[in-house]
Amino acid sequence: MNACLQTIADYGLRAIGIGKRLLPREDFTLCEQFTLIGSGMIWNVYFGVLALIAGFGFATFLALGKASNIKTVRKPSEWFIFLFRGSPLFIQFFFGYFLFLKLKTVFPIFAPFTAAWLGALVVLFFNTSAYTAEIFYGALRSIPKGEIESADAYGLSGWSRFKRVIWPTMLRLAWPAYTNEAIFLFHATTLVFFSGFPAWQQRGDALYYASYFADKTFNPFIPYPILAGYFILLTLCVIGLFSIVNRRLNRHLPANTRQRLRIRPNLIR
C-alpha cells in the first residue's frame, strides 16, 4: 500500500514533467500502470477541454457563416468545414506538425507550435470547430419558424434577436449531437502522440503510456483495459456535465417534449 502511495507521488504528475524522470523499466506493478496511465489522462483532459471551449466560440461563427446569404462569408465557412470534416484527423495532425516545422524555419515565432501542447491543440481546435459548426448549422436550419416570427412580433431584431431567441434555440436543438461531439473529441485526443508530435521527455497522454506498457510487457490485456476504464469515467463525467446544461437549456419546455440526451459515441474521425 505504502509502495503504491510512493508510486503515486513519483508518477502521479509524470505526464507534465513533475516527479521521477525515468519511467519504470521492469517489474511493472499494477499500481504503476494505473498511476502513469492516469497521469497521462491530464493531457487528454487538457486537449479536450481547451479545444472544446475555444471550438465552441469559433463554431458559432462558422455556423452563422455557413448559414449566411453573403457569398463571400458562406464559401470560406463551407470550405473550412469541408476541409476538416472530409479528411482524417490523423492526416491533419501529421500535416499540421510538418507545416509548423516548415513555418518554424521561416518564422521562429512558430517554434512552440511544433510541440504537442500548442500545435496539436490548434489542430484539434480547428477540427472540433468544423464538426461542431456542422452540428450548429443543422440546428440553425431547424429552428422552428414560429419562434423567429414571434421574436419579430416582439420587435426584436438583429443582435438582441440572435442573443435571446436564435442562439439559445440553436444550442438547445444542437445539444444532444454536441454532447456526442464532445465525447468524440476526448477520444480523438488519444491520437496526438501517435501522429508526428513528439512526446518530449516521455510526457505523453494516457494512450502513450498504455502502449508503452503494452510494448514493454507484451501483455495488452492489462494497460488497455485500464485505459478504457479511465475513458469510460471521463465519458461519464462529460455526459454528466452536458446533461446539466441540457436540463437548463430545456427548462422552459413541458417535461414530455424535452429532448433526452442520446449518447452514441462514435469512432475515429
Binding site: 477520444h187 488519444t190 502502449s211 503494452a214 488497455y224 478504457a228
Partner: peptide
C-alpha cells in the same frame, strides 16, 4: 466494441 475508446481498440 462501441464502449471502448477508439484507437485503443486498434492497438489492443
Amino acid at each position: 466494441v462501441r464502449g471502448v475508446p477508439d484507437i485503443a481498440f486498434f492497438l489492443f
